[in-house]
Design a protein around this nucleic acid. Structure first.
Lengths: 111, 111
DNA sequence: TTCAGTATTAGACATGTTTCGAACTTACGG
DNA sequence: CCGTAAGTTCGAAACATGTCTAATACTGAA
């Protein structure tokens, strides 16, 4: 049966999710995000749900033909949208996709 | 088992999907899209998967506090991204969300 | 046909995005 | 301590987006 109740889709939620969709709305960022999600990224070594990359930004820079500063900017966009996280350990950078955030987006799309 | 083959995520596909995410990246458009998806829109009368609306753009215009031309623009964005469709029959406008397109986005997000 | 209501288009403007190069920071190795 | 390699930050240029008003087009009713 159909639900006649209004789903309380608050303005904050809509604004929040729109920001995450915006982070995915650029082809370069979407490519980065998908490669990271699927762990198809260069130099990827999976450890549980955390992808381990070495020199990943430099390699994306080469792969996408973008300046390092541009790639850095795109990574920041994905992080501030709450879709990705990264952690430095010396020279290494650990990058991973926020599974919960992605799940919420999927649910929003009827999943 | 994990698949070691590279998923052929073509540039065209990435560009295409990025456009659809962009269509959802504006809070006003996302609100319109969600209301349409859930058929919570003003004047909604459900008929299978197609929502029937009367004067829906004017009502969104009031609800969102935007000029009618702006709402028209947002609807067009959603349509050209391939996420929504509409069909006029006299005064009535039939609006529906492209279920296949949404499903593809969901799959892209790991669904 | 003319009118009222609704949707679209065109043009304009402010704001935001994407990208770069240059300068700066951090971490490791010799 | 210095050099190298990787990332970040900053400022600027080019381009895209969101929004409005005004003008135009379409629809049904008087």
């Amino acid at each position: 049966m159909s639900n006649t109740e209004k789903v309380p889709l608050s303005d904050e939620l809509v604004v929040d999710k729109a920001k995450q969709f915006k982070a995915l709305s650029n082809p370069h960022r979407l490519r980065i995000f998908m490669d990271m999600s699927a762990c198809l990224g260069p130099g990827c070594v999976v450890e549980s749900d955390v992808g381990q990359f070495e020199n990943c930004q430099r390699e994306f820079s080469e792969q996408l033909g973008l300046a390092p500063s541009t790639v850095s900017h795109h990574f920041k966009e994905l992080r501030t949208a709450g879709l990705m996280h990264m952690r430095r350990e010396g020279k290494k950078v650990f990058v991973w996709v926020d599974g919960d955030a992605v799940t919420e987006l999927r649910v929003l799309l009827g999943g």
